[in-house]
Simulated scan of single mutants.
Amino acid sequence: MTTSPPDIVHVSSAHPWTDNRVHLREAAGAAAAGYSVRLIAVESDVTTRETGVEVVTIPRRRRRARMTFGSAQAVRLAVRSRARLCHLHDPELVWAVPLLRVLGRRVVFDAHEDLPDQVASKAYVSRRTARPARALARLVVRLVSTADRVVAATETIADAYPAGKTVLVRNYPRLRAEEASAIEPSRRPPVVAYVGALTANRGSAAVAGLTGSPAFPHGWRLELAGHVSAPEAAELTARPRNDELPVVFHGRLSPEATRDLLLGARVGVVVFEPTAAHLNSLPTKLFEYMAAGLAVVVSDFPLWRRLLGHLDCATFVDPTDVDAVAGAVAAYDSDPDLLDRHGRNGRRAALETFSWDGEEATLLGLYRDLIGSPTPGSHAREGGS
């Protein structure tokens, strides 16, 4: 760790240091703009490219230990960094907002989730504890509102915070050169891709049952990458790695390897179940699929239909109907022109609308408002763990 204080420290006791939003977009974007940036986040089994961000890792812990010992360790390291601006990323860190402000730091809180709705959908929140959990979530929202600025990932989340100090920075992907040279999906292997966490309310039943549906096209396979925790999908992780099998589980991959995987697929699926949190979400994987030129099969949510319906790039399905999801894949199999048109239109929308460039400009503007432009002699640091 370097001894000179960074301009900005990003702090997370829950996210791995390789996280797409926290590190590869927000922290890396600030470093590329000339700010000196440190990231305090959780250790990870995977790695990622050099970004100019100085990385300090803390141990992975179980939920209760993470929310107590992990959050305390992360905040202590943030205080010791002497950074002028602390950018916090987890609800369990909200107690540090007044402390950091008393110490003279500018504080930005990144609201990734609509907390009251998100709490209700957590598997560990029972019916008995749901009401106090939602009350606690509302208290967190009030504490977050005392930060100097709030960064919200969606418009719905932004609505919960004071308009005068809240900016919208959506989870759109950073575009890569690799996608620019991608071939049309009909010329790729017959693969359906799902990347990211696969849990009960993220469509695990539909994804796990996809290749067993009579509607699923012959000769296609499903490729998964990420963390699988749902019981109905757990067997997928136990299968041997074999490209001849209808399901291939790659485990956890680096962010770059995950996006490379998409370049070898034709269709991406996002079949989240209609929980209160998901109905207004903007999952990064959806826009990564589009950037890679995939046709997409998505839950028929009103927000997603408003975003994509007019773009002619997606098939909307009931996420609880496995045969409907499989049938959407079969429709692409039988109509290569439809497949390529949806892939081409999705790619164009990713370039023109759903990219990180505009979101990064908003975030950098926020940093300039709070601590000014990067000072002469400020420099990006070497990445690492």
Rank of each mutant, 00 (worst) to 15 (best):
V269H: 02
A291W: 02
A160Y: 00
L93M: 12
D318T: 07
L115A: 02
R176K: 10
A137I: 01
S373A: 14
A295K: 00
L139F: 11
V11W: 03
S44C: 09
G34Y: 05
R138S: 08
A120I: 02
L351T: 09
V322I: 15
R127T: 10
G327C: 09
N345Q: 13
V329N: 01
D19K: 01
H112W: 09
L139K: 07
F301H: 06
L198C: 07
A182L: 05
V119R: 00
L39W: 10
A324W: 10
E178L: 12
V79G: 04
R188Y: 07
D335L: 13
L245I: 09
L279K: 12
L303E: 14
Y367G: 01
H379K: 13
A72G: 12
S204E: 03
R341E: 14
V267L: 09
L99T: 13
S71I: 01
P217K: 01
T275D: 03
G70I: 05
I157H: 01
A177I: 12
R188S: 05
G212C: 08
A277M: 05
T275M: 07
V75G: 00
R82K: 15
A193Y: 01
A123H: 10
G372T: 08
A130M: 08
V46A: 09
L175Y: 15
S186E: 12
N242M: 08
A349N: 04
V53P: 07
V269P: 00
R381T: 03
F354H: 06
T129K: 13
L286E: 06
D159P: 00
H379V: 14
R348S: 14
A206Y: 00
A158Q: 01
Y289F: 14
F109T: 01
V296C: 07
I183A: 14
A96Y: 09
